Simulated scan of single mutants.
Amino acid sequence: MSLAFRYRLRNFLVPQIFQDRHGLTLGDVMSQEDDNELMRQINFQADVAERAKPTNQNISAIAAMLAEHFDHRDEGDIKEQIKQVWRSRELFWDE
């Protein structure tokens, strides 16, 4: 992951979306960290969409771009997570 990409992620708070780390293997913990970074990026994209209201954002394109950086999740899973964030923030999207 590029330094610029990590820089964009570091200032966003992310809710825990998976189980606690108690009893998880190192691979699970690393996946948790990747998932946290993924959620930071989804929230960053949601901030962009919020500033662009009422313009619709293409969530398929966003999911495809994020899937390139976060290969531990498939594009469909990422797209569903984007939809959940967009719904909770009452944002507009195209697929």
Rank of each mutant, 00 (worst) to 15 (best):
F12M: 12
R40H: 01
V29R: 09
R87I: 06
I82N: 02
S60T: 15
N11I: 11
H69M: 13
N43Q: 11
D74F: 01
I78H: 07
W93C: 02
V14M: 10
A63S: 03
L66E: 02
I59C: 04
M1P: 06
H69S: 14
V14T: 10
N36M: 12
V85L: 06
Y7R: 14
N56A: 15
E75L: 05
W93N: 05
V14L: 07
Q32M: 05
S31Q: 15
A4G: 08
R87Y: 07
D20Y: 08
I42N: 04
Q16I: 08
V29Y: 07
R40K: 08
L38T: 04
N43Y: 15
N58V: 02
L24G: 06
F18H: 13
D94G: 10
R21G: 08
G27V: 01
V14P: 06
Y7M: 13
Q84H: 09
G27P: 03
Q16W: 06
R6S: 10
Q16F: 09
I59D: 00
Q81Y: 03
S31M: 15
K79R: 13
D28I: 07
K83E: 09
M39F: 11
K53Y: 11
R10H: 12
A64K: 13
N11L: 14
L3S: 13
R40W: 03
A49K: 09
F5P: 06
T25H: 15
R51N: 09
A4S: 09
T55V: 05
A64R: 14
R6W: 07
E75R: 07
D34C: 14
V48Q: 12
M30V: 07
I17D: 05
L3W: 12
D20I: 11
D77L: 11
H22G: 01
G23F: 02
Q41A: 13
